[in-house]
């Protein structure tokens, strides 16, 4: 399958953080699931995840895949959003030595990667430290 088709299929999650909320037990799954892991129900309501959270853990990538070489070193983190949902994403707009567990972050819309000079541009979410 081409990259553009796979990217397109994930747009609701990558652009709008659309998650699935189980109509049986209320558990929220991101990315959405077909079957609730908690109660086994197959009906879900679409909900948008909150855009605030805090860093639960992170790691620093110093030897990245080729599309990300110009950004190294950069951090990948697990973000605990305000509603408790965990989100794995890049943490942008900071040098890795500024980061700490528990740091408040905001989710912003960013460019994730380009499929070379002539290919599509892939957009999505990244966490950005809140420094107010």
């Amino acid at each position: 399958m081409s990259t553009s088709a796979r990217y397109w299929r994930e747009i609701p999650q990558r652009y709008r953080l659309e998650a699935g909320k189980c109509s049986g037990c209320g558990a929220i799954w991101f990315p959405p699931r077909l079957v609730c892991k908690e109660c086994g129900k197959r009906e879900f309501e679409v909900v948008n995840l909150p855009d605030r959270g805090k860093v639960q853990t992170f790691t620093v990538i110093r030897v990245p895949p080729s599309e990300f070489c110009d950004q190294a070193p950069y951090a990948l983190g697990v973000i605990e959003l305000e509603n408790g949902v965990l989100l794995q994403c890049q943490i942008a707009d900071c040098s890795p030595d500024e980061l700490s567990v528990g740091m408040p972050v905001r989710i912003e819309f960013r460019k994730i990667k380009e499929e070379g000079e002539a290919g599509i541009i892939c957009y999505g979410y990244k966490a950005v430290p809140v420094r107010e």
Binding site: A92, D93, R110, Y123
Partner: peptide
């Protein structure tokens, strides 16, 4: 702009 920012990303944030 940062390496991961362009007209589209900034427009989305301003629109939000």
């Amino acid at each position: 702009p940062g390496l991961d920012q362009d007209v589209i990303t900034m427009s989305v944030e301003a629109a939000r």
